[in-house]
């Protein structure tokens, strides 16, 4: 399980003349859950845009050994690098089932799609119950499940989950974190981008801390959680003495 599925070296990117990311190095091994944490404006979204190739960048991004630099966003998606976008971005006036079908839009293998449906409905039984309901009528947590289910319908190899916990109750976040672990158990590698550091550390194997466009800490989440600087800045823990 040590093969590097996603490997980023010396990545810089920005908007116009404004640099946002400088010299990012990051990797995700197959089967891992890796989290990228940082506060608002740290550059998390910019990094995701560079990975999905919707934003030009310098440096090297390799996915499963292939250089993504010259690829279109569609080609990156077709390789199995699939995003659950921030804010869910559901098709609000389509049914849950149709939203899931859209995740499999580019797939033509009917049997494989049927298996993916089974998997999604097993992971999220509530989506099966509500499959005829309009996605816009779901609760926030159910909408996030629908967005994750839709991404799974694309048969991802690396699932990039952007701000999963945003606007959700802690109990719902806990439930979703449990599902993430299950998804990993089914052989899908996960990159979890989060502001909720506490939630992210509870499920991830390793983490990266992004601050003003640079990776300032990296390591096992147990090490990061013990790091006084990380504790002070992100976990809201004041050190005694």
């Amino acid at each position: 399980m040590n093969a590097k599925l996603l490997e980023i070296e010396g990545l810089s990117a920005g908007y116009g003349a404004v640099p946002v990311l400088r010299g990012i190095a990051l990797h995700v091994a197959a089967g891992e859950i890796v989290t990228l944490v940082g506060s608002n404006g740290a550059g998390k979204t910019t990094l995701l845009r560079a990975i999905s190739r919707t934003l030009a960048s310098r440096g090297r991004i390799r996915f499963d050994g292939r250089d993504l630099g010259a690829l279109s966003p569609e080609a990156v998606f077709a390789l199995g690098l699939v995003q659950v976008p921030e804010g869910r971005q559901l098709f609000a006036r389509m049914s849950v089932e149709e939203n899931l079908q859209m995740g499999a839009y580019l797939r033509r293998d009917a049997a494989g799609i049927a298996r993916s449906f089974e998997r999604v409905y097993r992971l999220f039984p509530v989506l099966f119950e509500r499959r005829r309901q309009k996605a816009g009528s779901l609760s926030g947590g159910e909408q996030q499940m629908c967005a994750m289910g839709r991404a799974l319908m694309a048969a991802p190899r690396l699932l990039v989950v952007d701000e999963m916990s945003l606007g959700l109750a802690p109990v719902v976040v806990d439930q979703l974190l449990g599902v993430l672990a299950e998804i990993r158990g089914e052989g899908v590698t996960i990159l979890l981008v989060e502001q909720d550091v506490f939630a992210a550390f509870s499920v991830a194997d390793r983490g990266y801390v992004l601050e003003t466009g640079r990776i300032v800490r990296e390591g096992k989440v147990s090490e990061l959680a013990a790091d006084p600087e990380v504790r002070r800045a992100y976990l809201g823990v004041a050190e005694a003495g």
Binding site: P73, E74, F77, A78, Q83, P85, Q89, L90, F91, A92, R93, M94, E98, Q101, M102, G103, Y105, L106, R150, A154
Partner: peptide
Amino acid sequence: TRLGRAIRATAQNLVAARLYGVE
């Protein structure tokens, strides 16, 4: 139909439709 679903999806959320491979 698959085509019709893609048409409605694009009308409702262009960003997401592109994200999942609609051209």
